[in-house]
């Protein structure tokens, strides 16, 4: 099947006008989308959950002893996804839900990379610049969540250790969110408990990741700890 884009029609269609956005379009949209599409925990359950989180945090906090100087951001006293420090890997963690009381919907993030994070990324919410400049052999891992999932799709439970072979793969020829031409991506969503899921993203600086590169990513993923 010969696939092509008809240039003459493309030009003709391109010449057709596109209606402008009315001044109040986004105001109206905002008014209708205010509030969360997800189910929130009932107050009682939320209190119990918070108590449980704090309890586990105290246990984890007591045992914590990082030997690697990681550019950690935010408080880490509640259990969130985290990478155990390891030589040759940089990690960044946030605990937005606890440290940012004015933005309860901000997500927790854990990053790991075998390259230095771009300085501007360590103050941002996403390693955008690091990914844009990911060299061959570079690996960046981002874990987002946990967050409450209310969709109807069957989402698998998270199997630890996460391994890239079990994730959805997007080769570096074009995919949504592709940060740079040579960067391939692995991705999954997985439940960590009946209500909540996490997203795991792995980017590698290769259009055809080698077994060695995948093994290196797996080794770091093996150091990922999740709240139970």
């Amino acid at each position: 099947m010969h696939e092509y884009r008809d240039k003459e029609l493309a030009e003709a269609l391109d010449a057709l006008p596109v209606p402008p956005t009315s001044d109040d379009f986004y105001t109206r949209m905002r008014a209708r989308t205010t509030g969360s599409p997800r189910q929130r925990l009932m107050p009682g359950r939320r209190l119990l959950a918070t108590a449980a989180l704090v309890g586990v945090a105290l246990l984890v906090g007591g045992a914590a002893g990082a030997e690697f100087a990681a550019p950690s951001r935010g408080a880490t006293s509640t259990p969130v996804p985290a990478f155990t420090p390891a030589t040759g890997w940089n990690i960044v963690e946030t605990n937005n839900r606890q440290s940012c009381s004015s933005c309860p919907d901000k997500l927790d993030l854990a990053w790991a990379a075998n390259v230095p994070f771009a300085p501007q990324d360590t103050q941002a919410d996403w390693p955008t610049e690091t990914l844009k400049n990911l060299p061959p052999g570079g690996i960046v891992i981002v874990v987002v969540g946990p967050w409450t999932y209310t969709g109807s799709d069957a989402i698998p439970g998270l199997q630890l250790p996460v391994q890239v072979e079990n994730l959805h793969f997007e080769a570096a020829n074009w995919y949504e969110g592709q940060p740079a031409p040579n960067v391939s991506s692995y991705f999954t969503s997985a439940h960590i408990n009946p209500q909540e899921i996490v997203n795991v993203f792995v980017w590698v600086g290769s259009d055809n990741p080698t077994p060695a590169l995948k093994a290196a990513a797996d080794q770091e993923l093996a150091r990922l700890t999740m709240p139970s």
Binding site: T34, R38, K106, W147, G177, F201
Partner: peptide, 19 residues
């Protein structure tokens, strides 16, 4: 496209600004 996956994740959590 860079921020789309994160924006989507945030929007899925009810962040209407991200949406």
């Amino acid at each position: 496209p860079a921020p789309i996956p994160e924006m989507v994740a945030r929007a899925q959590c009810g962040d209407s600004d991200a949406f």
